[in-house]
């Protein structure tokens, strides 16, 4: 014997009229799809559980307040709510440092935002301009290799091709450039830290 399944729209109408059992059927019918959808985005069972719960709280409130309009289908509507809550979760988790309770210490849960504040940015600019002035004092051949390597991000192979010297010579010039920079920094007690 074939059992006719009651349509979602009928269950929604019955629920709005007060049949709590209709909600139980709707949740039972769609829970796996919605839960899997959320999990496929956040990959964490506890967070999935929270978002699943929040999704249905929103569904229940909307239906009870009579704000639901039967324009679309029930499942796509619930999926859209879940999708929006997943987006909200990622927005929040980017802003708020979180501690997970898995027992392991996670360094990323305690390190702060890496973007610099106004003061640090000014200091960073100052340090960078000091370094540039020090580089200007280096012998021409060493300066050339250092600038190509550090500022132009060229490999030593590319530097050797551009300057017409061997890779070993380029490496040697880089080494002496760094040694000379350290010497000048130590000699004049220049502080280059942020």
């Amino acid at each position: 014997m074939r059992v006719e399944q009651i349509a979602d729209s009928v269950l929604v109408t019955k629920y709005i009229q007060g049949s709590e059992n209709s909600l139980a059927i709707l949740i039972e019918r769609h829970k796996q799809k919605i839960y899997s959808f959320i999990y496929s985005k956040v990959y964490d069972r506890n967070i999935t559980e929270d978002i699943f719960q929040d999704t249905f709280i929103k569904v229940i409130r909307t239906l009870k307040l009579g704000k639901y309009n039967e324009e679309g289908k029930f499942l796509p509507w619930v999926m859209r709510i879940a999708h929006n809550l997943v987006i909200d979760y990622f927005r929040k988790s980017n802003r708020i440092p979180t501690f997970d309770n898995r027992g392991e210490f996670n360094i990323f849960s305690v390190i702060s935002d890496s973007s610099l504040n106004a003061e640090s940015r000014i200091i960073k600019d100052q340090v960078e301009s000091d370094v540039r002035r020090l580089i200007e004092e280096l012998p021409e051949d060493q300066k050339q290799v250092l600038v190509m390597r550090m500022y132009n991000d060229m490999s030593f192979k590319e530097i050797s091709e551009n300057t017409g010297v061997s890779i070993n010579t380029a490496l040697g010039r880089m080494r002496y450039a760094l040694i000379n920079l350290r010497k000048v920094i130590e000699k004049h007690n220049i502080i280059l830290t942020n």
């Binding site: 949740i27 899997s36 559980e49 229940i60």
Partner: peptide
């Protein structure tokens, strides 16, 4: 993914929340 389901407690909470909420 096809075998994932919410905890029974979560579904129970939602049904109880629904019963408790009146407008």
């Amino acid at each position: 993914l096809d075998t994932l389901n919410p905890k029974e407690g979560t579904v129970k909470f939602l049904l109880e929340y629904s019963q408790a909420l009146s407008v």
